[in-house]
C-alpha cells in the first residue's frame, strides 16, 4: 500500500487534467446556456464560435510575436484575448443582426432557430478554414510548466511525479476570474439583472420596460467572450484544430443539459461532471491501483474502462441518463 504515491498519480493523470478540461467545458457550456436562456434555442454554431474566436486570438498572437511583443512567462495569446473577444463579439453581433433578428421578430419556433444556427455554423466553419486552414496549430508560448514531474519528485522524494502545465494553471485561474466576473455581472448590475429577468419571464420583462434588443445584444457579446476564452484556453492546453472544436459541441451541450439548460451555475457543475467522468472512464487505472493493492493482486491489464477514443460516449451517456431521469437537469433549468 502506498497511498501517497497513488494520490499523486491520481492528481497527475486525473485530477489536474480533469480540472483544466472541466474549466474549459464549463466556460463553453456557460455561453451555450446563456444563449439558450435568453434566445431560447440550442446554438449549434457555438463550437465554431469558439473556433473562430481562437482563430482571431491566434492571428493577433502572431501579430504580437512578429512585433516582438510577448507576455513574459505567460502566453502571448492571453494578451491577444481582449482583441479576439472584440472581434468575435463584433462578428457574432453581425450574425444576429443579419440572420437571427429576423426570426426573433417573427417569433420563429426554436427548431427553426436551431436549423438557422446550422447555417451559421457552416458559414463560421468555412470562414475559419478560409482564414486559418484545417491544420493543427500550437500557439502556446511562455513558460511550459508551473512544476515539472522531476522537480516534484526531487522536492517530495516520492516515486510519482506531479506535473502541472502552465496552461492548466492559467486555465483554472482564468476560469475562476471569468466566472466570478460573470456572476457579479448577472447578480449585481442592472443589465445583468435585466438579463436574468428576461430569461425568467420574457413577457413580464417587456412589461417592465426592459429592452429586448439590448438584452439579446449583451447576451451575444458575453457568449462570444466566453466562447473565445474557452477556445483559447483549450487551444493553449492542447492545440488548435478547427474540427476538434466543432466536436466539443457534444460535451458542451452535455454539460449545459446536465446542469439544466439556461442555468449558469448548472453549466459550471455540468462542465466538471462531464470532464471528470470523461477522464476517469478513459484513464488506465493500472498505475494507481498498483500502489493501492498488494503486489500479488497487481492488475495485469490497463484497467481502463473504455479506450480514450470513446470519450464522446461518456458525455453522451451522462446526457442520456440525465435527460431520461432528470429532464430539467441537476440544477433546475428551463426545460419543462
Amino acid at each position: 500500500m502506498d497511498i501517497l504515491n497513488a494520490l499523486v498519480a491520481f492528481a497527475n493523470f486525473v485530477f489536474v487534467p480533469g480540472l483544466a478540461y472541466g474549466a474549459q467545458i464549463a466556460l463553453g457550456a456557460l455561453g451555450a446556456t446563456l444563449i439558450y436562456g435568453i434566445l431560447r434555442f440550442s446554438n449549434f454554431a457555438h463550437g465554431d464560435t469558439m473556433a473562430l474566436g481562437t482563430t482571431f486570438a491566434i492571428l493577433v498572437t502572431w501579430g504580437f510575436q512578429a512585433l516582438g511583443i510577448t507576455f513574459g512567462f505567460l502566453p502571448t495569446a492571453l494578451l491577444a484575448l481582449p482583441f479576439a473577444i472584440i472581434m468575435t463579439a463584433a462578428f457574432v453581433l453581425g450574425t444576429d443582426r443579419v440572420v437571427y433578428r429576423f426570426y426573433r421578430r417573427q417569433k420563429a419556433a426554436p427548431t427553426i432557430l436551431v436549423i438557422v444556427s446550422l447555417g451559421v455554423m457552416f458559414i463560421m466553419n468555412g470562414l475559419n478554414r478560409f482564414i486559418i486552414g484545417v491544420g493543427e496549430i500550437n500557439f502556446a508560448d511562455g513558460a511550459r510548466f508551473v512544476i515539472t514531474a522531476g522537480d516534484f519528485r526531487a522536492m517530495t522524494g516520492l516515486t510519482e511525479g506531479l506535473a502541472i502545465k502552465a496552461t492548466q494553471a492559467i486555465t483554472v485561474v482564468t476560469a475562476v476570474i471569468v466566472v466570478g466576473l460573470l456572476f457579479w455581472f448577472l447578480q449585481k448590475t442592472r443589465t445583468g439583472k435585466s438579463m436574468r429577468a428576461f430569461s425568467d419571464n420574457e413577457d413580464l420583462a417587456l412589461l417592465s420596460g426592459i429592452n429586448p434588443d439590448r438584452v439579446v445584444q449583451v447576451t451575444w457579446i458575453i457568449a462570444a467572450g466566453l466562447a473565445t476564452i474557452a477556445g483559447v484556453l483549450y487551444g493553449l492546453d492542447k492545440s488548435f484544430k478547427a474540427f476538434t472544436y466543432f466536436q466539443l459541441l457534444l460535451p458542451i451541450f452535455a454539460a449545459a443539459v446536465v446542469g439544466g439548460l439556461g442555468n449558469p451555475l448548472g453549466a459550471i457543475a455540468g462542465g466538471f461532471i462531464v470532464a471528470f467522468s470523461e477522464v476517469m472512464v478513459t484513464y488506465a487505472w493500472k498505475k494507481v491501483l498498483t500502489y493501492l493493492v498488494p503486489e500479488s493482486m497487481a492488475p495485469d491489464g490497463l484497467v481502463q474502462l473504455m479506450s480514450t477514443d470513446y470519450k464522446f460516449a461518456v458525455s453522451f451517456t451522462i446526457l442520456i441518463i440525465v435527460l431520461l431521469f432528470l429532464p430539467t437537469g441537476i440544477f433546475k433549468g428551463k426545460s419543462a
Binding site: 442592472r190 439583472k193 435585466s194 436574468r196 429577468a197 425568467d200 419571464n201 413580464l204 420583462a205 417592465s208 426592459i210
Partner: peptide, 14 residues
C-alpha cells in the same frame, strides 16, 4: 406576473 427565480427585491428593481 413575477420573476420567480429572482428575489423579491430584484423583482421590485426590475
Amino acid at each position: 406576473n413575477i420573476f420567480t427565480t429572482m428575489t423579491v427585491e430584484e423583482n421590485l428593481e426590475m
